[in-house]
Design a protein around this nucleic acid. Structure first.
Length: 433
DNA sequence: TCTGGGGTCCTAGGACCC
DNA sequence: TCTGGGGTCCTAGGACCC
């Protein structure tokens, strides 16, 4: 038995905790660079705002309908997520944190009064963290996801399902006819694991609803689509095929990529940007105690603008594997020098670290001086500590440049970011009586 | 003018091994 | 006419997730 606990419109809900005046208003949170909508309040959904819709297409709603647009404040959301996950874990013995706003709780078979406990956890998260959430309970993860959708839909649109399915929805307690009704009213493409492409292929064969999917014969599904979809079919039938992942598996790849605030026409700002991306990626790498055996760097023009297109990329092997910012920046700069071509308006670039291996499995170079590596890692440790205490970029490699936030045109736009209420002492909210 | 970022897994096909 | 059997590794492409 599994539970899926999911924060409603999570980013918007985080913003509303600290700005209650946003309650009841149509609100969207924008992606990095204020590019497109990545979270929408129910009111914004009602206005027809689509997930991923570009911001410039929403401008008219700002004036006409009072749509509030906020820049993403991931530092705030990450901290709110930690708080929510801690409370969610109280529902059962095992937790898998699946994304910033969702967690599965597993091994619930022996839990007594499961519904009552689920309601209690939901109430606690709402009271202590301020995030409204919904809970789906079912014998498989896919059905738990589906029940979570039902719980949300019935909360948002009262009357769409029996009222007892709102907010906390338990598959186990639904009579057979209601289960079928729920599956029939869920589109195949809304099932976890069925994306847009497969939904189209299924529809071409007359498989439209989740009920249709659940009735497909396994061998046919496997031969036509593969084991992934077959697992989904079986999960819809109530046979658990997707196990819990209790500890996040080690990363196989770490990336830092960004769209630029303004297009870049020259090499110099591009090198600054890439230096910074490599620096960020290196920090993530060291946090997980990994080293990279290869570094991939790319830059390209906007896929949306007309005009000459450029897509440059190259991979550099790192021998020996390293987590040293200086070495990674050097590789990134070398790569960028080798692919750069003048005459293009570049919209995006990035650095990806690959062939990751745990530091303790490091292969030493027989011929290199033994103490060099140790000195380097002590330097990185010191750098991480200084930056952790005094703020990102307090100490950095010179090639990231010294321009202020406003001067460096390549930096992303974030014109509507709210304060980092819970993680930055200078931005903490002040209560006045 | 303006369109995100960061991941994972599976499969097929080719190269290569003994 | 007839040309083995059993593998691994790598890559590219396609699909999915939030």
């Amino acid at each position: 038995m599994y539970a899926l606990i999911d924060g409603n419109n999570f980013y918007v809900s985080c913003e509303r905790v600290f700005r209650p005046s946003l309650q009841g208003l149509p609100v969207v949170v924008l992606s990095n660079n204020d590019g497109c909508a990545i979270a929408r309040s129910d009111e914004a959904k009602a206005l027809g705002v689509k997930m991923g819709q570009p911001f410039f297409q929403l401008q008219h709603l700002v004036e006409l309908k009072g749509l509030v647009c906020l820049s993403a404040n991931f530092e705030l959301y990450g901290d709110m997520s930690d708080r929510m996950m801690t409370l969610a874990a109280g529902l059962g013995p095992r937790q898998e944190i699946y994304s910033i706003d969702e967690s599965f709780i597993g091994d619930l078979a022996g839990v007594r009064d499961l519904n009552r406990r689920a309601w209690a956890v939901r109430a606690r998260i709402l009271q202590w963290v301020g995030i409204p959430c919904c809970i789906g309970l079912a014998p498989t993860k896919t059905l738990a996801k589906l029940c979570n959708h039902v719980a949300k839909d019935s909360e948002r649109k009262p009357g769409s399902y029996p009222p007892e399915l709102a907010r906390v929805c338990n598959w186990q307690e639904m009579p057979r006819a209601l289960r079928e009704d729920v599956l029939r009213r869920t589109m195949a493409g809304d099932v976890w694991g069925i994306g847009r492409r497969i939904a189209v292929q299924l529809a071409e064969r007359g498989v439209v609803t989740a009920l249709d999917v659940s009735r497909m014969p396994g061998p046919m599904v496997r031969s036509n689509w593969g084991v992934v979809l077959e697992r989904t079919v079986r999960e819809l039938q109530g046979i658990s095929c997707i196990p819990m992942e209790l500890a996040p598996p080690p990363k196989k790849q770490i990336a830092c990529t960004r769209s630029f605030g303004h297009g870049i026409n020259e090499l110099e700002p591009l090198l600054e940007a890439v230096s910074e991306f490599a620096t960020r990626a290196a920090e993530k790498l060291r946090k997980q105690d990994l080293r990279a055996g290869a570094l991939h760097v790319f830059a390209h023009t906007s896929p949306f603008r007309p005009g000459p297109r450029f897509y440059g990329q190259t991979t550099t092997q790192l021998v020996p594997p390293t987590s040293d910012t200086k070495a990674l920046v050097r590789a990134a700069l070398g790569g960028m020098h080798s692919i750069y071509q003048p005459g293009f308006r570049l919209a995006k670039a990035g650095v990806m670290l690959m062939d990751l291996a745990e530091s303790r499995h490091e292969q030493h170079d027989l011929l290199a001086a033994a103490d060099v590596g140790r000195d380097q890692s002590r330097l990185m440790e010191a750098m991480d500590r200084v930056n952790g205490r005094f703020g990102k970029g307090t100490v950095h490699v010179a090639s990231t440049g010294f321009a202020s936030q406003d001067e460096a045109g390549w930096r992303m736009r974030q014109e509507r970011r709210t304060p980092r209420y819970t993680t930055n002492i200078d931005e903490i909210p002040i209560a006045r009586c």
